[in-house]
Amino acid sequence: MVGRFPPDVERALQRAGWRLGRRVETARWRAELVGLDMHPAAEAFLAEFGELVVDVDGPGRTAARVPFELNPSLCVGEEDRFLAWGDETGRSLYPLGELDQGRYFLGMDDRGVILLVETWVAAFGPGDQGLIALCEGTMPTRLQAGG
Score class of each variant (00 low, 15 high):
1 M>W: 10
2 V>D: 12
2 V>L: 11
3 G>E: 08
3 G>F: 07
4 R>T: 09
6 P>I: 10
6 P>M: 12
8 D>P: 08
8 D>I: 15
8 D>A: 15
9 V>K: 07
10 E>V: 02
10 E>D: 13
10 E>P: 00
11 R>T: 12
12 A>D: 06
12 A>H: 07
12 A>W: 10
13 L>F: 12
13 L>Q: 06
14 Q>A: 13
16 A>Q: 07
17 G>C: 05
17 G>Q: 03
17 G>D: 04
17 G>Y: 03
18 W>A: 10
18 W>F: 13
19 R>Y: 14
19 R>C: 06
20 L>C: 05
20 L>R: 13
21 G>M: 04
24 V>M: 10
26 T>Y: 02
26 T>I: 07
31 A>H: 14
31 A>F: 06
32 E>M: 14
32 E>T: 09
36 L>A: 00
38 M>P: 11
39 H>N: 05
42 A>Y: 01
42 A>I: 00
43 E>S: 09
44 A>M: 04
44 A>Q: 13
47 A>H: 12
49 F>H: 13
50 G>S: 09
50 G>K: 10
51 E>G: 03
52 L>E: 11
52 L>R: 13
53 V>L: 09
53 V>S: 11
53 V>R: 14
56 V>S: 03
56 V>H: 06
57 D>M: 11
57 D>P: 01
57 D>K: 12
61 R>V: 15
63 A>H: 06
64 A>M: 10
64 A>E: 13
65 R>A: 03
65 R>Q: 05
69 E>W: 14
71 N>S: 10
72 P>N: 04
73 S>D: 07
74 L>S: 01
75 C>G: 05
77 G>W: 00
77 G>L: 00
78 E>T: 01
79 E>A: 05
81 R>G: 02
82 F>C: 00
83 L>F: 03
83 L>P: 00
84 A>K: 07
88 E>N: 14
89 T>Q: 08
89 T>N: 02
90 G>D: 00
91 R>N: 06
92 S>V: 15
92 S>Y: 02
93 L>M: 07
94 Y>R: 12
94 Y>F: 15
95 P>H: 06
99 L>N: 04
100 D>C: 05
100 D>Y: 08
102 G>L: 03
102 G>T: 04
102 G>E: 03
106 L>M: 05
106 L>V: 02
107 G>P: 08
108 M>D: 00
108 M>P: 02
109 D>L: 06
111 R>I: 00
111 R>F: 00
112 G>F: 02
113 V>S: 10
114 I>A: 04
115 L>M: 11
116 L>Q: 15
117 V>N: 02
118 E>D: 15
119 T>D: 15
121 V>D: 08
121 V>W: 03
123 A>R: 15
124 F>T: 07
125 G>W: 07
125 G>Q: 08
127 G>P: 03
127 G>Y: 14
128 D>V: 10
128 D>A: 09
130 G>T: 01
133 A>S: 12
133 A>G: 02
133 A>W: 02
138 T>R: 13
139 M>G: 04
140 P>H: 06
141 T>K: 13
144 Q>M: 12
144 Q>N: 14
144 Q>K: 14
145 A>C: 02
145 A>T: 12
